[in-house]
Design a binder for these strands. Sequence first.
DNA 1: AATAAACCCAACCGCTTCACG
DNA 2: CCGTGAAGCGGTTGGGTTTAT
Length: 327
Amino acid sequence: MERLRAQEDIKKGPWSAEEDEILMNFVKENGPGDWSSIRSKGLLPRTGKSCRLRWVNKLQPNLKKGCKFSAEEERVVLELQATLGNKWAAIATYLPGRTDNDVKNFWSTRQKRLARILRASSQPNRAHKHKAKATVVNEASTLQASVSSFNQVKETSLQCHICSCFWSENASAINILPPPDCLNMGTAGVISGVPPAVDEHTSPPQLCIQSNNHQPSVSPPFGIFFSTEQPKPALNNLPLWQENQDFGAELGEPNFMGALTQQESLEVGNMAQHNLGLSLDELEATGQNFGEINDYKDKMLTIPDTLFADLSDDMLDNLDAVPRSSS
DNA sequence: AATAAACCCAACCGCTTCACG
DNA sequence: CCGTGAAGCGGTTGGGTTTAT
């Protein structure tokens, strides 16, 4: 009975300014901890859990309030999410002024947005269907070659079509970030960079390479992640991100991937990765339409026509969400 | 101007981990 | 060891705000 009454005394819902002030004063005097004593001392009718959350997410100093994630923050979130998974608290430690809740909300919103854009871009355009193969082969091999050489030269410069690469050695992952202003065929960006000073105790060793002659108009994330444990990093041998594995479901055909061979699944999945990995904010800000971006992505991957031979019309309609050459 | 859709984010819930008696 | 409570974390929800139609 006592417990029941105690539960009824617990206040929920939005915090008032007065409650915030009481909590701030408590932390000022006692430090951020012993949250449950706030209620047991009768200071606030809130659970310790609620008090802690309020402090962590809203009241603690140095929080970035009311400003959107920057492109750099976005890049960090995407890179770390790919490496760490949904470890929001861990990811937030790399983003000063951001909480795990911030990162979580950012990611969640972004995923919804991607899903919406994916749907929106799925409008049927049969004229472009089945035309993926012709112009893309060379670019795919270019990327492949670049990845291989990058593996070997690491710290020196190299020529390729990719303008921005991120190499997280401890995570056994390389993130390739090709901004669309490198789209022009034949444009070779000189990539050079040196490993930044790294405190191995506070941050994972990371080599960040930026283009010398390109300031990406659409900054990362736009990436392919793969394990360096793969003996030969090749486009058709990349492990999929989880969201790629889920892509079949996104297409409205849960068994889509299952209908394909593993090799085909990998290719489609990585193609989808491109689609899902766009930096939407900046992409939209540039005013570029998705057709252009999709054209670009076409140049990065080869999708054999045979892939589509056995798919239903509905599935093909959905696949229009995936980049396809307009030529 | 009205309405719907999308976005944003505060706060809750449930689960796991950890510390302590 | 075991039980219990606190703290921490990730998932989810709901409501307010902004943007698009």
